[in-house]
């Protein structure tokens, strides 16, 4: 193990480590802690210039009620769910199929297609912006959540295919071969032998795609204009423009917008990290 376990160090170093650890965490998360505190700070504090001091009272209920009452953030959150959940289902479903195809079959274009998906995953969004916006407009899907969903499904399929393909490659191939010998059809091999084994990969991808798409801001501004379809990232930014210097409201809004992916991360931490660190250990 590296570095040397702290248990082997002097008692002084051990104590020091235990003291420094929480301090470092507080310092690291200082921006977030500041926002969390400000979101429960009474508005009068800000007027009095008490921005970073101890709040004079608890204004959390007031602030959060004000955000939901005076702004369409509830609608924005709903829109984000309307974009995110269908995207997760669509991208994961498509990539189960493509990942299976690229992992199990040997054909000439296999690697070429695989790296096409990988490369597609790294390109700048701007090279897609003008045509995708134009296409969405022509299809009558501009300013709708469906327009965003379709794009996100297509784009996320690149990353998901990379992930699924590598995951299926790690499964024992003998399983598939013996099924073929028995005369099981390719579709049934996929459906009844491989798919049940893919559960951990499906879980990992679901949380990752959820977070990526929830946090998307660029496409939310390019493909949506009006409130009725706007996701919370773009919505929060437009609210920031209205709430000039009302930092207690901005903070409360930020916390609300950040909550779903944070909850997702905590609930599915193991899968999340397994997904994100794919390839960080071998190869």
């Amino acid at each position: 193990m590296f570095p040397t376990p702290i248990q082997k160090a002097s008692p002084f170093a051990q104590t020091a480590y235990k003291v420094v650890l929480p301090l470092a965490l507080v310092l690291w998360l200082l921006p977030l802690i500041g926002v969390a505190i400000t979101s429960v700070r009474p508005a009068s504090d800000l007027a009095a210039g008490n921005y970073f001091g101890i709040p004079s009272g608890f204004g959390g209920i007031e602030n959060y009620t004000a955000v939901f009452r005076d702004s369409p953030i509830g609608l924005y959150i709903l829109n984000s769910f309307k974009v995110t959940i269908p995207t997760v289902i669509g991208a994961v479903a498509l990539s189960c199929l493509t990942g299976f195809a690229l992992a199990v079959y040997k054909f000439r274009a296999n690697l070429l297609l695989f790296f096409m998906f990988v490369a597609g995953n790294f390109i700048p969004f701007q090279i897609l912006m003008v045509p995708v916006r134009d296409m969405t407009l022509k299809a009558g899907l501009y300013d709708t959540t469906l327009g965003l969903v379709l794009f996100h499904v297509a784009f996320q399929t690149g990353f998901c295919t990379l992930f699924m393909r590598n995951f299926i490659k790690g499964l024992p191939f003998a399983l598939i071969e013996s099924a073929r010998v028995e005369g099981v059809s390719e579709w049934r091999i996929f459906r009844y032998i491989v798919l049940p084994l893919m559960r951990p990969a499906i879980a990992a991808l679901s949380v990752l795609v959820f977070t990526f798409v929830w946090n998307d801001y660029f496409w939310a501004t390019v493909l949506v204009q009006g409130q009725h379809a706007m996701p919370v990232t773009a919505g929060l930014y437009s609210l920031n423009g209205q709430w000039v210097a009302a930092w207690h409201l901005v903070s409360a809004g930020s916390i609300i917008a950040a909550l779903p992916p944070v909850a997702m991360f905590f609930l599915m931490q193991k899968h999340f990290i397994a997904g994100l660190t794919l390839g960080a250990t071998k190869g």
């Binding site: 498509l94 003008v130 045509p131």
Partner: peptide, 29 residues
């Protein structure tokens, strides 16, 4: 020909989306 055709059927939906929304827009840009 099942084994030869199957990968293309599995790939079709994902590739269609990818071509429409990623590959083609790059060329169009």
């Amino acid at each position: 020909n099942q084994q030869r055709l199957a990968p293309w059927l599995f790939l079709a939906p994902g590739m269609a989306m990818f071509v429409i929304y990623v590959l083609f827009p790059i060329i169009e840009s």
